[in-house]
Amino acid sequence: MSTVISRNVHQSTLDDANWVRWSLIAVALGFVILFLCVPLVLVIIQAFSKGFGAYFSALSEPDMQAAMRLTLLTALITVPLNTVFGVAAAWAITRFEFRGKNLLITLIDLPFSVSPVISGLIFVLMFGAQGWFGSWFVEHDIKIIFAVPGIVLATLFITFPFVARQLIPLTQEMCSEEEEAALSLGASGWKTFFLITLPNIKWALLYGVLLCNARAMGEFGAVSVVSGHIRGMTNTLPLHVEVSYNEYDSVSAFAGASILAGLAIVTLILKTILEWKQTNRATV
């Protein structure tokens, strides 16, 4: 009898009154719907506002196609580079003790705290016509700023920490005992990495790659500074959206935006799956 009573008391102490609960849920969901759901839905509505025909013809415009290709190309270059870096950095930081380690961790996070516009500006300062190496590149007829290399460099900078950030806490928490066990059984360093470390971190690694990719494809501020907005040449998809929007070509702007929003939705879905996989990795 007493246990039944105490359980009821126990529940009521931790549960909020119904009216509190429902009003908080209403406020939270109202806020999320207004700020997150409505914008997402509106992208789709706007994209199809002039019908399917207009939408698909906007998507098949050569400038739009060129923008998509450039966005893909940029992601294709930057994501693998930053992934390799992220894995190496996580290994170096979590598997060894060395002087300056904390400084290194702080420096890796640096691009997160730099405004995207400044991230673009530094490359203009380096490679622009008045920049440090500008004149040398002009002499050799190599264009970096207002060209694809500048876009790649700025994106590389912006997406630099993503993979490393995901991996460092995880590899830290994963004790190195499993790796030591593999080494004691005669495995080489590479085999230990590929057979033991990688399978343990693969979901977090994919997660980092996913976020890195979303940012690489969607980056706007930094790329906007270095691109020069040359249609069909140096416009990435987000830049093409901006240009179209400013020219009141709403269908084209939202058609491009819908592609990017689709990318965001896919990212969120994969992210949810990967989060689930990562927390359940023990039993998978």
Partner: peptide, 23 residues
């Protein structure tokens, strides 16, 4: 709702910008 919280991380800022402006 849990998943959509991260939308601002995943949605390119330019897209957020034009859609918020439109609203």
């Amino acid at each position: 709702f849990h998943a959509i919280i991260d939308l601002p991380f995943a949605l390119p800022t330019a897209v957020a910008g034009i859609v918020l402006a439109t609203i």
